[in-house]
């Protein structure tokens, strides 16, 4: 028996959550595509930003949305400085060794968060409300997150498509050596990309803090979703990554509603493997 209310509710749920998965993966995708390193500490960066947002909310009482500019700037600074400090060395490493570097960084970050903020579950009780359109419930905080994310993503897209820096970034993704040959300063592009990547990641952390509770250990889960989105959507392809995230949200939602949510990770994995087999067979 087909119930349209449940179907459309599942669709809305999937879209709202999928956008969060998608934006959370964009930073990972960008850094991987441009610098060729897999940032295993991605989840820890997301949670760090979530805690900063939470902290800001507790001390100022302002709506968490007002943290957005701050978290983007902080994230950019963190990424840029990280590259300036050790990035050149890390990029030159064998891919498996750079993964190990980020593994160390992730341990360092998530346990610093644990020691700074304690292990308690945190959440921002802001706008836990929803409105109804024809029997479909739409969460207000999630809708605002969706709108903000779209806005942020469009700005990022314009930055990448229209500006010199963006064009240089795209050139580096396509061909690093060629880009250097035509006079692009690859290392400063790397530094800026790392900054943008972590900046977007921090933005997504703020979005997550607005809609979901979190603990210092939550990063691992978001890292898994992000990996899946990046691989599905294409490394370095930010639109693809965002859409893949949305797809993941939808798949999870429909499987959960029509079958059982307990099998959704396995289902997501099978889809992932199939996509990889079709797309990346023999790719390096």
């Amino acid at each position: 028996m087909f119930n349209p209310e449940i179907f459309f509710q599942a669709l809305v749920n999937g879209l709202l959550m999928g956008t969060v998965y998608g934006i959370a993966a964009v930073g990972l995708s960008l850094i991987w595509g441009v610098l060729g390193v897999v940032n295993l500490a991605h989840g820890s960066f997301i949670i760090l930003s979530a805690y900063l947002t939470y902290w800001f909310f507790v001390y100022t009482g302002l709506p968490p949305l007002s943290t957005v500019p701050l978290s983007i700037v902080l994230g950019f600074a963190a990424g840029y400085l990280l590259y300036k400090a050790v990035g050149q060395k890390v990029v030159s490493l064998d891919p498996s060794t750079s993964v190990l570097f980020f593994f160390g960084l992730s341990l360092l970050l998530s346990n610093t968060i644990l020691n700074l903020w304690g292990p308690d579950v945190r959440g921002i009780p802001w706008l836990i409300q929803s409105f109804q359109i024809a029997e479909i419930r739409v969460s207000l905080a999630r809708l605002i997150t969706l709108a903000t994310t779209i806005l942020c993503f469009i700005s990022l897209y314009i930055l990448i498509q229209r500006t010199y820096i963006g064009k240089a970034i795209r050139a580096v993704v396509i061909n690093r050596v060629g880009a250097a040959a035509v006079g692009i300063d690859v290392h400063s592009i790397f530094a800026v990309s790392m900054g943008i990547g972590i900046g977007v990641t921090f933005f997504s952390g703020t979005m997550i803090a607005m809609v979901n509770p979190f603990t210092p250990a939550s990063g691992e889960g978001y890292l898994m979703y992000s990996f899946a989105s990046v691989v599905l959507g294409g490394v370095g392809n930010i639109i693809g990554t965002l859409l893949a995230g949305i797809l993941m949200g939808l798949v999870e939602s429909f499987i959960g509603v029509y079958f059982s949510q307990s099998i959704s990770p396995a289902a997501a994995f099978i889809i992932l493997v199939l996509v990889i087999l079709v797309r990346y067979r023999g790719a390096k």
Partner: peptide, 26 residues
């Protein structure tokens, strides 16, 4: 699986352990 290379292989296998786990706990 082994026709996938580099980081893609790593990410695919990252999901493998979890997928087997999920199957077993069901």
């Amino acid at each position: 699986l082994l026709s996938i290379r580099g980081p893609y292989f790593a990410i695919t296998t990252l999901g493998l352990g979890e997928a087997v786990r999920v199957i077993i706990v069901n």
